[in-house]
Computed example of a mutant assay.
Amino acid sequence: MRKVAQIRVLHAEMLEIVAELDRERAAQAAGYSSLAAYLVEATHMARAKATRRPGWSRRPP
């Protein structure tokens, strides 16, 4: 169970970083059309996963 707890902590930290990148519009400043496009390119994350926003029914203002 200790490893599961570590994975959860790391996942939460990753989500905080992604949220900060989104708030600061860092991907657009780096020349990407969206944060999802940046995540796909930089992390090789699947496009479907990069565009999913847990708990959000639509993009916040």
Results as ranks from 00 to 15, higher is better:
residue 15 L to D: 10
residue 15 L to F: 09
residue 16 E to V: 10
residue 17 I to Q: 13
residue 17 I to P: 09
residue 17 I to S: 14
residue 18 V to N: 12
residue 18 V to G: 15
residue 18 V to K: 15
residue 19 A to I: 08
residue 19 A to V: 08
residue 19 A to S: 14
residue 19 A to F: 10
residue 19 A to T: 13
residue 20 E to G: 02
residue 20 E to M: 11
residue 20 E to Y: 11
residue 20 E to D: 10
residue 21 L to F: 15
residue 22 D to S: 05
residue 22 D to A: 05
residue 23 R to G: 08
residue 23 R to C: 13
residue 24 E to L: 06
residue 25 R to N: 12
residue 25 R to W: 05
residue 25 R to H: 11
residue 27 A to S: 02
residue 27 A to K: 02
residue 27 A to E: 00
residue 29 A to F: 01
residue 31 G to N: 01
residue 32 Y to S: 00
residue 32 Y to D: 01
residue 33 S to N: 07
residue 33 S to V: 10
residue 34 S to W: 04
residue 35 L to P: 08
residue 36 A to V: 02
residue 38 Y to F: 15
residue 38 Y to I: 06
residue 39 L to H: 13
residue 40 V to Q: 01
residue 40 V to K: 00
residue 40 V to P: 02
residue 40 V to D: 00
residue 41 E to D: 06
residue 41 E to C: 02
residue 41 E to V: 01
residue 41 E to N: 05
residue 42 A to F: 10
residue 42 A to K: 12
residue 42 A to E: 13
residue 43 T to P: 02
residue 44 H to F: 11
residue 44 H to S: 15
residue 44 H to T: 14
residue 45 M to G: 07
residue 45 M to I: 11
residue 45 M to A: 11
residue 46 A to E: 07
residue 46 A to N: 10
residue 47 R to K: 09
residue 47 R to N: 03
residue 47 R to G: 01
residue 48 A to L: 03
residue 48 A to M: 10
residue 48 A to R: 13
residue 48 A to P: 07
residue 49 K to Y: 09
residue 49 K to G: 05
residue 49 K to D: 08
residue 49 K to E: 12
residue 50 A to F: 02
residue 50 A to E: 01
residue 50 A to H: 03
residue 51 T to F: 06
residue 52 R to S: 09
residue 52 R to A: 11
residue 53 R to V: 09
residue 53 R to T: 08
residue 54 P to S: 01
residue 54 P to K: 03
residue 55 G to K: 04
residue 56 W to S: 12
residue 56 W to V: 11
residue 56 W to M: 11
residue 56 W to I: 05
residue 56 W to K: 15
residue 57 S to G: 14
residue 57 S to A: 10
residue 58 R to D: 09
